[in-house]
């Protein structure tokens, strides 16, 4: 654009450096804490140079923490497994149910279809506890409280509307003529969906699936309300860990690092899709 003065370039450089420090510092700092023993963590002033140790990670992975006072059991790997299982299954179910539904909504305007789509969209912005609190009472009656099935069911409240709205937009962008031509050539409705619509909407489906996975993984309140210790994902598990183990700061940091790595890695790997999805879909961290 316009040529800029030296002073302005320096000021811009300083501002950008401050921005990067502010947003990166917490992640870097927790990463550093996760490689320290409690002894170096508690030192004042905080240490920038230390001998890194993997002890925190081994303690988490083996589930046993040996201290001078004795051995402590850590169930954090269980939380990590729960997060993986709940997020992957929820997104798979949501894709399986949501993509065909999105196609139906995009291609066939039938009575009520807009109403359903609108209800889903408007509740996307509704407070989670409004739906969640009565659900806990229902789930207790139905025996669904603290079951994986119950949790996956509830996770559909985030995943399915997201996939429906994003993927529907992508299907609508495919020219109907292409599909029509394929149909006229004597192919069935399902073959058209599978051979034409699905591949063309592929990037949209990937973006929606990715976003749904991140939201499912990062969700906190659903499992806080509906799951007890053995079914909790990392978001709730880490909070319980911090209160139960009190002073094991090294392990807590390592647990946080393990919990945020999957979403950060996915985000960096597929950032192009993500930006597209974020601007299209509804966002809830």
């Amino acid at each position: 654009m316009e040529h800029t003065s030296l002073l302005e370039r320096i000021l811009r450089g300083i501002a950008l450096t401050l921005v990067v420090i502010f947003f990166m510092f917490p992640i870097v700092w927790i990463l550093m804490m996760s490689f320290q023993t409690n002894e170096t963590i508690l030192r004042i002033p905080p240490q920038l140079v230390f001998k890194p140790t993997l002890a925190n990670y081994t303690a988490l992975i083996t589930g046993k923490l040996t201290t001078a006072a004795g051995t402590l059991d850590i169930a954090f790997m269980r939380n990590l497994w729960n997060s993986v299982f709940l997020s992957v299954t929820s997104v798979a179910v949501a894709l399986l149910l949501g993509v065909p539904a999105a196609y139906a909504f995009a291609r066939h305007k039938f009575r009520g279809s807009e109403d359903i789509a609108f209800t889903l969209l408007s509740f996307r912005f509704a407070p989670a506890l409004l739906v969640l609190l009565p659900l806990t009472l229902y789930f207790q009656k139905l025996g669904l409280a603290n079951t994986y099935i119950g949790l996956i069911w509830v996770y559909q409240l985030i995943c399915l509307p997201l996939i429906l709205w994003i993927v529907r937009g992508y299907f609508e962008d495919i020219p109907a003529d292409i599909e029509y031509a394929y149909r006229i050539a004597g192919h069935s409705w399902f073959a058209t969906f599978r051979k034409i619509a699905l591949p063309l909407a592929g990037p949209g489906i990937a973006a929606a699936g990715l976003l749904a996975f991140i939201f499912a993984w990062n969700n906190f309140v659903f499992a806080l309300v509906l799951a007890s210790a053995d079914k909790q994902p990392v978001t709730v598990g880490a909070l319980a860990f911090i209160t139960s183990s009190g002073i094991q700061y090294g392990q807590i940091s390592a647990a946080i690092v393990l919990s945020i790595t999957p979403t950060l890695a996915l985000a960096l790997y597929a950032q192009r899709y993500l930006v597209e999805g974020l601007s299209l879909g509804a966002v809830k961290g």
Binding site: P26, I252, I256, I260, L264, A267, Q271
Partner: peptide
């Protein structure tokens, strides 16, 4: 800068 946004808010609070 996407990284903070991709961090679960509950975990960010713990950090």
């Amino acid at each position: 800068l996407l990284m903070p946004l991709m961090t679960a808010p509950a975990l960010a609070a713990l950090m």
